[in-house]
Nucleic acid binder design. Structure first.
Lengths: 336, 336
DNA sequence: ATTCAAAATGAAATCGATTACAATATCTGC
DNA sequence: GCAGATATTGTAATCGATTTCATTTTGAAT
């Protein structure tokens, strides 16, 4: 159906090699033949077959992004950064939704082995360090966002979860809160684990005893946060603030409070994480922690492309980026 | 670097053809040779090169989804439906973010011409009917969500924007509202146009004169809705309800109201469109129109695959799916 | 006008799989 | 045990581009 390179060559009265040269290198062809060829290309609406090209060139100029859940704005904002930077360097970006399933994540990683992608970027992967390193050891190109993987050829970028969690806690403590709930995500996720660690360290720093009943697990989604809050309310224990492991769960807290007529921030302070784009539009605006998501995506894809081009920058492999606590209406009133 | 089929063949002591048969068809090989081959495949960690396979088979088993903006939950929920159905049929789905730029949309459509994708699904495309039909006419496989394109080989699925907009209006009118703002999206978008049409028809049906000053354009984002509301408030004209063309803009309305101490729904009723997953978590929960997003994705990808397999179902080309008005706290109190 | 270097073009090999067709091995029935 | 049918395996062509290497053309200098 489609025109092939020999069709173009025949129409232009040249050899396939010449057509290829016109389309790929700027020089080495007379402007006269270039015109002839381009005319034929246009008339036949010729597009080089990607499979043939990839096969011959042993590369695809494709980068895959493996996200845990494209419904979560955290991932999509990172992806915007990846896309724009990659696009500028002539790479195409394909987004893959692992839907929080390690099995799917693994399946998408095989796109490297079958050479569908030249490289992949994994955002907060669930696979183990060992499994990811093993793939990299075979010579495939991987970059990771949201985790630090000790491997000389894996660029990584992340924020310090423990650090910003302590900041969140210091903020709530400064507002006078002592009974602070920690609303966790999936307990296995590294983000959950580290944010919990920051929570615990802050309590310790301030000589506040840890009360396990103040920690509940959610699922990083609105409903998980809502259900967790209902369980907490049912416990009939006092608390005056909630630190949710992400903004989605914080929204679930809002709903649970609305149902019980509990006013935020007067009766309950709430802080989330991720600065979801909607968080400043809810009432009251949600205090949260901002990560430079777009920039993280842009930086890491640039480093990945460097790796693929054999430009090794050992000193620029790991990036720890700063996060920022945004205090908004959901927590800024101080309690007495 | 990677093992090739001849390496596997050599290791197993068979020909490449036999290796291919083991990997592709279940029958036609002795179980003894199958075992030998599989052993070699495992030991060499062999993965067939996708480019070579695609080139020879003249297909990729890849489907591309071209979304306008992956930051918008409307698109991502549709994509979930596409993915799961496609996955069940052994297709891989790659998500492409056009970022509301027709130029990028067009660029992604060329994935069909260069055979990177066997087919693409365009969600509320911006390209003209003519342009899309032209591509289909060349024999490429396209399906469209959110618009009806008159072409015998393009499966389409959409909801009736005019119809549900009238329902929204009837609901607001039944609550006693007469001065109803319509907060439009991009005026060029088909969704905007049709929803405005429903708004106008409802006014006409009820003999309410149209007041152009009650219509403002936004951009389908929170901030656009917020800014539009500010402009409306500045006009100092009375209105008691807002019909926003999507939930994101409705959230901007919430923020604008919060800033001015206007309470929803007592002083202002608000209704959105799309049933964004967060809309039931805001305070008050947002009245909105639900579209069966997941199902729409699942249905259309199935039809697209039918087309690609040469199973033409002329009678099952166009699907108009029902939407549902969800009346929640942002509009259900009646005014007097 | 002739020679030689440089530039442009073409012929053919190549990438790594699948598959049509040919060849060989196995099985069945007598 | 053998013919013939059938099942298994191998050989070689093929997909459509790029790229090496060889060849031809062009242009500059004498």
């Amino acid at each position: 159906m489609d025109a092939k390179i020999i069709d173009v060559a025949a129409k232009a009265g040249v050899s396939p090699a010449t057509v290829s040269r016109v389309l790929n290198q700027a020089n080495g062809v007379t402007s006269k033949t270039r015109d002839k060829v381009m005319k034929a290309v246009d008339e036949l609406n010729y597009h080089p077959n990607a499979a043939a090209k990839n096969l011959r060139q042993q590369k695809t100029m494709n980068i895959g992004v493996i996200a845990q859940d494209i419904n979560n704005a955290y991932f999509t904002e990172i992806i915007k950064g990846i896309e724009n930077m990659a696009y500028a360097q002539k790479y195409r970006v394909f987004i893959c939704d692992a839907e929080n399933q390690p099995e799917k994540e693994r399946e998408y990683v095989t796109m490297l082995m079958d050479r569908t992608m030249d490289g992949v970027i994994m955002i907060t992967p669930q696979l183990s360090d060992e499994e990811i390193c093993e793939v990299a050891n075979k010579g495939y190109f991987i970059a990771v966002i949201g985790r630090n993987i000790e491997h000389p050829r894996i660029p990584c970028i992340y924020t310090d979860n423990v650090k910003f969690s302590r900041q969140v806690m210091e903020h709530l403590l400064a507002c006078g809160h002592r009974d602070i709930v920690f609303l966790n995500g999936y307990p296995e996720a590294i983000d959950s684990y580290e944010r919990l660690e920051g929570y615990l360290k802050a309590l310790k720093d301030n000589q506040i005893p840890f009360r396990p009943e103040l920690v509940e697990n959610g699922d990083f989604n609105e409903n998980g946060g809502y259900e967790a809050m209902k369980r907490l309310f049912d416990k009939k224990i006092p608390f005056s603030a909630v630190f949710a492991a992400n903004d989605e769960m914080a929204l679930g807290v809002y709903q649970a409070c609305a149902e019980r007529g509990i006013s935020i921030p007067d009766q309950l302070a709430v802080v989330g994480v991720d600065n979801n784009r909607i968080s400043k539009y809810v009432t009251p605006p949600l205090s949260t922690v901002n990560q430079p998501k777009y920039t993280m995506g842009a930086i890491i894809v640039e480093r990945l492309i460097d790796q693929m081009n054999d430009n090794q920058y050992e000193d620029k492999r790991v990036f720890v980026v700063d996060s920022e606590l945004l205090v908004r209406g959901s927590s800024h009133f101080s309690r007495k």
